[in-house]
Nucleic acid binder design. Structure first.
Lengths: 235, 235
DNA sequence: GATATTCTCAATCCAAAGATGTAAGACACT
DNA sequence: AGTGTCTTACATCTTTGGATTGAGAATATC
């Protein structure tokens, strides 16, 4: 690894003691150069702009500005800065949100220091590193958040009562078309569209187009249509 | 572990040779009881209904019915059956979709057999197991799929031009309210609501409420509001 | 061959939505 | 004191949307 320049690291942690400890640990390992440390998230963002580090170790639990907000800021800079989140807690939701925002790793502070170095190695090599235990926690949240989608597809879904033509009309409705637009696109008269739309309202048990569109979107209408299209290809 | 009854396993793999190999491997380990094996996904679903296994090892690449479709079926049964996906490929998209559908693990067939047993141990213990290498692949896809959300939030977003009151009105619009409903909920007159709504149309550059709702939903309006609410709490 | 469903179209009527202009009070900023 | 923005409100007018009823033609189903 010595042929490559050392990866440049920035540390952000409101706990000064922990900050010092991590700095020593990271400096000790020859592979990394600590280009800055700060206890303030906002200053940290400034330092990132200034020094363009390869990797940032960011504490998640800071009083002034929480780590997630800081991470959002880092991503907005679009400097390709990699971020490893540090936290005292293995909260599933926090892990999920950090990874969603683009964290390249997530380490619990009580973990062995070797694990931190390992995570840094992996991340600087372009990978994403999440300890096995945290991966499991992450998926708790991940799969729960997708359960709703599945439920929408499988459960009693009023969309199933729509005819093929009605689905087409609803599709155009969910793209913001009015009667005239739909009539033009389907080559049918406006009154026919009205008939279809009224039937759709009945079947979806709604009173107007906006509610119909919302029902469609909240009950996986787009997914349904895509799935149908895929079935056609597969068969 | 011996005080507990052995976990009951079902194997589904269209490759008969691989099926036999896995069966021997799993049977050898005393912890598991193989209650059935099949090379057909459809038959597999039937066997799950019949035997209610604790865990299913499911091949992802089957000609008759692909593993993802089979996994969907398993989830629909809602028997709490845990599924570990087996695949020859470490395709990021495939991993993502399998985990999204509720897989409790994902193993590449060429991995060491000890890894498979380890995954089974973890999964039967209620955890979710993804080898480190696959976790990294998974997150490639995961973070890419959320990049759009971030873009919607950060890029030129017409929603940013809305005033606080207009946001409230738009929020009620995106819940399917008409003028009267909004006026009632905000304790203002209907004509005032019309004024707000018209201003919203101008700012979002749309012609009617449906388009406004669609713009809001497609540009992270719900997320924005949630984020704003959280900021309030934090501060 | 009878029945049911779907898709098409029309007329009518009322309610709701949208466009436009005007304006007063509250509040912040300077 | 003055400017600007936000929120509130009303009047007016046009267009669009939605409800209802009825009905012919095509297609499937049995």
């Amino acid at each position: 690894m010595d042929y490559k320049r050392r990866a440049r690291i920035l540390l952000i942690d409101d706990n000064a003691d922990h900050l010092r400890g991590v700095k020593e640990l990271v400096s000790m390992d020859g592979k990394y150069e600590v280009v800055g440390t700060t206890t303030s998230a906002n200053i940290g963002i400034g330092l990132i702009k200034k020094y363009r580090p390869d990797l940032v170790l960011m504490d998640m639990n800071m009083p002034e500005k929480d780590g997630l907000a800081a991470m959002t800021d880092v991503e907005k800079l679009e400097l390709g800065t990699k971020v490893i989140a540090l936290s005292a807690y293995d909260d599933a939701d926090l892990i999920f949100r950090a990874m969603k925002l683009g964290a390249c790793g997530y380490i619990i502070k009580t973990m062995a220091s070797a694990q931190l170095i390992h995570a840094m190695d992996e991340v600087t090599a372009g990978k994403i590193y999440l300890p096995t235990a945290l991966t499991s926690r992450f998926f708790e949240h991940f799969q729960r958040s997708f359960k709703e989608d599945t439920a929408a597809t499988s459960a009693e879904n009023l969309l199933n009562y729509l005819t093929a033509r009605e689905e087409e009309v609803l599709d155009l409705l969910t793209n913001g078309n009015n009667y005239k637009g739909i009539a033009g696109k389907l080559f049918i008269s406006e009154t026919t569209v009205k008939t279809h739309v009224n039937n759709i309202f009945q079947k979806l048990q709604v009173n107007d187009r906006t509610q119909a569109v919302l029902y469609a979107l909240n009950n996986g209408f787009a997914n349904k249509r895509k799935a149908a299209a895929q079935t056609k290809i597969a068969v």
